[in-house]
């Protein structure tokens, strides 16, 4: 199986450049406030898209919803609101998802 060396090296360069450019070149410049806001929102949108991507299962071009992932995610959303504990939320969310999986026998 092919090892992802090329991918890792490219990501290393891209990520380091983004950090270095910030520190070395953006210093002393006032960033456009609109652009600053936009940068803040990008990770939120990508995180949501990734969660959605995990909830839908694609099989031969047709897609369906993964109930264990959906159930676990909803419980995790409620748990983090109530407990504010990251680790506890992740553990409980996974247990709920597992419970649904065994209950449905999938």
């Amino acid at each position: 199986m092919a090892e992802p060396w090329v991918l890792i090296i490219v990501l290393c360069i891209v990520t380091f450049l983004s950090r270095l450019i910030g520190v070395e070149m953006m210093a002393g410049r006032v960033l456009n406030p609109t652009l600053r806001l936009y940068f803040n929102f990008v990770p939120i949108a990508i995180m949501v898209a990734l969660i959605v991507d995990q909830i839908f299962i694609t099989d031969n071009g047709s897609s369906s919803i993964s109930l264990p992932i959906l159930g676990g995610s909803i419980v995790a959303a409620l748990m983090i609101k109530v407990t504010r504990s990251f680790l506890l939320t992740v553990v409980i969310g996974i247990l709920v998802g597992l419970g649904i999986r065994y209950w449905l026998h999938i």
């Binding site: 983004s18 950090r19 910030g22 070395e24 960033l31 940068f39 803040n40």
Partner: peptide, 13 residues
């Protein structure tokens, strides 16, 4: 995903 590093770097410079 790395765009925000520009912002962080600028603020940390």
């Amino acid at each position: 995903l790395n765009l925000r590093n520009l912002l962080y770097g600028a603020a940390l410079a």
